[in-house]
Write a protein that binds this DNA or RNA. Sequence first.
RNA 1: GUAGAUAUAGCUCAGCUGGUUAGAGCGUCGGAUUGUGAUUCCGAAGGUCGUGGGUUCGAGCCCCAUUAUUUACCCCA
Length: 494
Amino acid sequence: MSAQKPSIPKGTRDFGPAVVARRNYIFGIIRRTFEKFGYAPLETPTLENLSVLTGKYGDEGDQLLFKVLNSGDFLKDVTADDLQNEDGKATRRVLPKVAEKGLRYDLTVPFARYVVMNRGTLTFPFKRYQIQPVWRADRPQRGRYREFYQCDADVVGTDSLLCEAEIVLMMCEVLNGLNKEAKSENQKLDYTITINHRGVLGGMYDALGESNGTETNLFTAIDKLDKIGIDGVKQELIDKGFTSTEAEKVFKLLYMPATAIPSSDQNQNARQEFLYRIQNLKKSLVVDISPSNILAETSERATRGLQELGQVVDFLTAFGFEQFDRLKFDPTLARGLSYYTGCIFEIKINNVNMGSVSGGGRYDNLTGAFGLPGVSGVGFSFGVDRLYDCLEELELFPEGAAATTRCLITNFDAETMPLLLPVLRELRAAGIPSEMYPESKKLAQQFKYADAKGIPYVLIQGPEERAAGQFKLKELRTGEEKTLTLDQVLATLA
RNA sequence: GUAGAUAUAGCUCAGCUGGUUAGAGCGUCGGAUUGUGAUUCCGAAGGUCGUGGGUUCGAGCCCCAUUAUUUACCCCA
């Protein structure tokens, strides 16, 4: 029997020590930001009941769920009739009988489930963050994995747009934090936070009047504007049942001339531009709504959406937010998840070819699916795996993030090694991560070990040093060697 | 689900029009240096060329199939 070649499922990865250290660096910045804004940690099970997961992400989402086969005789409830596939629905019939659990697909739905199950004990508004892996049975490709981490922060139980404003603040704080290590300006993550409102999108649909195309088709088509261009979107709209007149109308609404009130304050300019665009769109929507129809109404949801976007900007201004140049209003932003109802967010890194590294939005009725209607929530999520790929491409990781051990004690021979164990204890007691090389191999080998592991210092006490009651401490980076007493060693390494 | 690309040493990849014994760099191991890494010099090990068929006097190279990986589309973090 030949040994099998080991492998891991596609779309999954091992994380070696150096990678884990750098991932923890990212997690740390995100976690500290969430906590600074008053979010409390939550963890939920890897497995959820399929009844919790299915139907929350649309038909495509259900397809991407990893289902877990029941334990034991998982075929015991399946009948011969179930397996008849003349109608092509055998899979649908059999699935609930053989699998009742699945891997979580995101962190928001488990959170909603948790909120409903614990509504009696929670204090609202409830702010929680959650950093855990999720699984999607997707086709892996650049920046897309089947197992990846999400870092969610959500608030439920308040409609206040302060939450939306704070999401922008947290997004900036995390990305600014990640840019701290940048050695030059063009090494930084050049990020843009895009914001839109589902009401604005809905208002555009309303502005078309009676149409054969569906609202969802309109949203997903214009979301692709930056990818496939005006003609591409137009074609897709027509394919999906819109008339070319309607398509033209959509582009008329999206067309927003740039404002021109230049001043020396870039932050002020960006803020003005944002507000100007909102005003502009508001006018367009009103003017263009079915002028021939006497019963035409100004779309209520559009008005509400634009008003809320303005409110978010006002809160940010009052807070003293100074990065309006990072915040763009983009009426074409749609985002896939169907449960969003209010503001929606997305972060793109402009100088790295990567999908969005963060996204989120408000959902007015997420807990409704679990029997608790009328609770509003808003939240967002960072994709750590994508952020990692971006930082790596820009070489933005701090040096030494990978090293754990600070000092290696060399091992001369089996007899004297135990005599140095008290020294090892003292190093550790002083809070210096240290290790003794476990075998009495030749020194070259032990030095190579320290070098390969990125250990900065090697401590030596051979017969000569012992006779003098001293130690030799070598700093590998410089090659410098010093003969020191133990106290001096501790002082150097501390 | 749709379309393309790739598969050769532990890793990254060369390999010409199909022609003798399969190549490099890095890494690993040994030595130069029996108390010193990285750097320098010398040496060694390491291959069923993804797998299975076919064409040919002859296949790493051409053809077919298959598997794996990967990129783009759809969708998404």
